[in-house]
Amino acid sequence: MPVERIDTADIPGGGQLHLMRCGPDFSIQFGEDELMGSLDFGSEKALATLACERMGLQQDRVLIGGLGMGFTLRAALAILPAHTSIVVAELVPKVVTWASGPLTHLFGDTLADPRVELEIRDVHDVIVNAPQGFDAILLDVDNGPDGFIQDANDRLYCNWGLRAAFAALRAGGVLAIWSAYADDAFVDRLHKAGFMVDEVRVPATIGRERTPYTIWLAAKPR
């Protein structure tokens, strides 16, 4: 079945994302690398469900970094109580356009939910400007804990970036980060920033030979 490029989105600071379609299936690619696809989304859902399960009773405000195809947002809306406010920070404006265009069938009415506040903004800027502002921060903006999409994203995963995330969480809050691979050095940085860390491997649902994805659940002590 032929692969078709549906649209291209410029990334602020340089680079492009490509929205691809193969029959009924869609994917978002950066260069030759697939960032996410409509067939294999179990780990994106797990990012939300695992984090929310560890948040405890305080679930007032959650930050999701990266809109993607909306799977993490949909899972968060399904599990979080009606009073929870969910802020979604998306850097690339056209990704939001895709959500109400060719990817409407994936998003449904999630962005119209009154609990959702969408910001076209770098998630790093949201974090550093919200001390003790969130009960959970869910990050799925790169393929792992490094600046894959843009070099500036390194500041999310460096020592001082993790300290900023720690400061943006309320006591008992959770920083959850999706990755396509494991990284022991990153776990060490999470510990040094003050987090208690749980590493979860989530198997890919497409292709038995694929390496499991990694989700780090870093809790701020109460």
Rank of each mutant, 00 (worst) to 15 (best):
E32D: 14
V92H: 02
D122G: 04
C22D: 07
H191Q: 14
D198F: 10
A51C: 06
H18E: 00
L91P: 05
D151E: 15
R74C: 09
A164P: 05
P93M: 09
L118A: 05
D146V: 13
R210A: 11
D7F: 00
V95T: 07
A48D: 01
A168H: 05
T84C: 13
R61I: 06
V88N: 07
A112C: 10
R170K: 14
N153A: 12
T97L: 13
P131W: 01
E4M: 00
R115S: 07
L47H: 08
T205C: 12
G133Q: 02
E90L: 04
D113N: 14
S27Y: 00
D140M: 04
C158N: 15
R21H: 00
C52A: 14
A165T: 14
F148I: 07
G194P: 08
V123L: 12
M55P: 02
D140H: 07
Q58F: 12
R74N: 11
V197F: 09
D113E: 08
W98Q: 01
G101R: 10
A130M: 08
A164E: 10
D151V: 13
P131F: 02
L103M: 01
S43P: 02
A167T: 13
L190Y: 12
L169M: 08
V200W: 10
L217C: 09
G31Q: 04
C52I: 13
A171S: 15
L118R: 06
I137P: 03
G65L: 07
A136G: 03
V3Y: 00
V126C: 11
W98T: 02
T97G: 12
A130P: 04
V141Q: 03
V95H: 01
V62W: 03
D113I: 05
C22G: 10
N153C: 09
M1S: 11
W178V: 06
I127H: 03
L39C: 06
M20G: 00
F107Q: 02
T110I: 12
D7S: 00
D188N: 14
D33L: 12
R61L: 06
L138E: 03
Q16T: 12
W160H: 15
G68R: 03
G101K: 09
D40T: 02
P24F: 01
R74K: 14
M55R: 05
G194E: 07
A176Q: 10
F148K: 06
A89V: 07
W160D: 15
T110Y: 07
C22M: 12
A180I: 13
Q29F: 01
H18D: 00
G42I: 05
P93I: 09
A171D: 15
L138C: 06
T110F: 06
P12F: 02
A48V: 04
I79H: 13
A171Q: 14
A164K: 12
D125N: 13
N143K: 06
H191T: 14
N129E: 14
C22A: 13
G23W: 01
G15R: 03
L111G: 06
S38I: 02
L156M: 09
T211I: 14
H124E: 13
E32I: 08
P12T: 06
R5L: 00
F30N: 10
L175C: 06
I137D: 03
D60E: 15
I28T: 03
P145Y: 11
Y181S: 13
Q29I: 01
F71M: 04
L217A: 07
Q59M: 11
D10A: 15
Y157S: 11
L80Q: 06
W178T: 08
T72K: 06
V141A: 08
P93F: 09
D25L: 10
C52E: 09
E44V: 02
G207K: 09
E199Q: 15
